[in-house]
Design a protein around this nucleic acid. Structure first.
Lengths: 233, 233
DNA sequence: TTGAATATTGTATAAATTACACTATCAATA
DNA sequence: TATTGATAGTGTAATTTATACAATATTCAA
């Protein structure tokens, strides 16, 4: 094996954090400003950054997420690594990288992580120049994000679909503590891109021992109030 | 974000290539010899190596697999990236790395790929010092492999289990062109760690339009010969 | 009181999964 | 050539799971 072709790529992590507002699937993006020949250009990217020297990849994903969004103790699940040299083919991305890292960067290999969090959790961040905000996943698909972040989000979405099929418990990460069956169904449908039958869905929920009915109804709705449920264990 | 903690890890790929001998699940390992204070030490590792400078990760996995096993045009599917700094905590592994790469290596982040190939494919290799051979997956689990390769194999195994559930077609990658239902069932059972009922399995196969019966029986068996089938499309 | 909006509930049918045991075939050998 | 050992091959009933489908209940607001 010859050595002259071996070099030292940079390694980063990117977090695809999903939320649910009761109606639509959301994802956290960070605003990015690039100073391009004294013209300021704004676009959006996933929360992500280079890993530290002796830092475990999973640990790094948690650190970066906290630094850029303020979210702590989030379960992050690795789903795929993106390693095309074309990831840095856009000069705007390279410019931004070199400005923010003060490093000369040839290529970056990034590992994607997904998380599912309750959308009412507060987003905070260290830096003055980045702002983490929720965006509609459907809207984001039409936007042009930094690097290959559109592609990363699609893979992340695919990943949570698979995850949720194996572990339906994960759905409750996205719902408020108290929720209606209707919210649960909407979430299920939006993730799986289906339209479930109301009665059959009720039946399905009824045989989930970990979804327990509360003695409480939703409030402030201009129609019959739905019963609230919570997730147990 | 401070820069002093950012550095340039090495990036590699490792291939977990599964085969099936009609009875047991197999995996390709490479023999490794380490010269430790003039004592030769032998052990085994997955086929894997550092990526090249401008090489796509997927392309790299294919190149490395061909270089180390002679296998060409294999469909490799990425399943997980291993990024613990502890991956190089064994001095023996570091010694081997530095001898083979002539590089000073602190840590290596590796991306795992799986492949499923017919076990009768010929294994060939460039180097005089490595030999690729099939090993029982069950036996390998009891061996101590290089780096975290035991762990990588377990993740790979989990991955093909999921894959095969979604895409039962993949099973036929592991079988000879002509196979018996009994072989198919044994393979199914060994991958899913179950014991399927013979009659129910026949029923299941009967409703797979892509498994077609041949007008041919197996030969050289000291009992009633089973009908041969092949995979179509 | 009425209408608008959403919540809640059951039954019949079809499809998929599971459990279960005897006969058929062939080669080796007595 | 009869017997034995080893594996192939086959069907039915019961259970579980998935699907299709519509009328009544509750609440708020007009």
């Amino acid at each position: 094996m010859s050595n002259e072709n071996i070099f030292y790529p940079h390694v980063s992590v990117d977090c695809v954090v999903f939320g649910f507002d009761g109606e639509k699937l959301k994802v956290i993006l960070i605003e990015r400003t690039i100073n391009e020949q004294n013209e300021l250009y704004n676009d959006k990217k996933l929360p992500g950054s280079l890993i530290f020297s002796e830092e475990d990849l999973d640990v790094s994903a948690n650190r970066v997420l906290t630094e850029l969004t303020g979210l702590k103790n989030i379960y992050l699940s690795q789903f795929r690594t993106f390693g095309s040299p074309d990831r840095t083919k856009n000069p705007r991305d390279v410019l931004w990288l070199e400005n923010t890292t003060k490093l000369k960067i040839g290529r970056i290999i990034t590992t994607g992580y997904v998380a599912m969090v309750k959308i009412d959790r507060k987003l905070q961040f260290n830096s003055d120049t980045t702002t983490a905000k929720w965006h509609d996943v459907a809207e984001v698909a039409k936007m042009s994000l930094a690097f290959d972040h559109n592609e990363i989000i699609q893979w992340g979405l695919k990943h949570i679909r698979n995850q949720v099929e194996i572990q339906p418990h994960l759905l409750f990460e996205l719902l408020p503590t108290k929720f209606t069956i209707s919210q649960l169904r909407t979430l299920y449908d939006v993730i799986n891109q289906v339209k479930s039958d109301v009665r059959n869905f009720q039946k399905k929920v009824a045989q989930m021992p970990y979804v327990v009915a509360l003695d409480e109804l939703e409030k402030g709705v201009p129609h019959r109030a739905a019963r609230l449920y919570r997730y147990k264990k």
